[in-house]
Each structure stands twice: as structure tokens, then as C-alpha cells.
Amino acid sequence: MIDLHTYLGLSATGFILGVIGVVTRRNAIIVFMSIELMLNSVNLTLVAFSSFLGDATGQILVFFVMTVAAAEAAVGLAIIIALFRNKQTVNIDEINILKW
């Protein structure tokens, strides 16, 4: 029997891997994928709690997270397309005009 800790630890590991992806990668699409990774790790936490506590709310929340993730993916990818069209790059080091 796998206990709750194991699931939570696994989820935390996945989440932190996503964070590392976000703070280190230069390719905007991969950064974006790392965000998806973080979202999914959180989903695992929610499902684990739902299952262990016997409450459906966690799984409902996962459902909503997925909906939002879908919307976010659509908008985010549209932004990347627009960005690429203007700057011919997806390197986020070069996308730094939002300052001063």
C-alpha cells in the first residue's frame, strides 16, 4: 500500500522539476511546457488527497484546472506566435523590453 507521503513527494519533485525548467530554459515553448508540468504535479497532489480523504472535490478541482490549462495553452501559444512574428525568436532572454 503506497501512502500519501509518497504521492506528495512525487508530486513535489515533479513540481520543482517544472520550476527548474521555467527558471533555466531560454526557449519560450519549453518554458511553457514546464508550466504544464507544474500544473500537472499539482493535479497529482489534488487527486491523491481526494482519494485518500474520500472527497470528490479534489477531482472536481482537477477538472477545472484542466479547463483553465486548456484555455491558458490556447492563449499562451497565441502569444508565442505573435511574439515570434514580431521578433523572429522565441528566446525569452531577448524578450525583455518590459522594463524601465
Binding site: 525569452i92 525583455n96 523590453i97
Partner: peptide, 10 residues
Amino acid sequence: QTGVAQVYAT
């Protein structure tokens, strides 16, 4: 304010 989102994330 570097404008690089990753710095903010860090």
C-alpha cells in the same frame, strides 16, 4: 527591473 521574466520567477 531587468525585463527578463525568469529573473522575476527566481
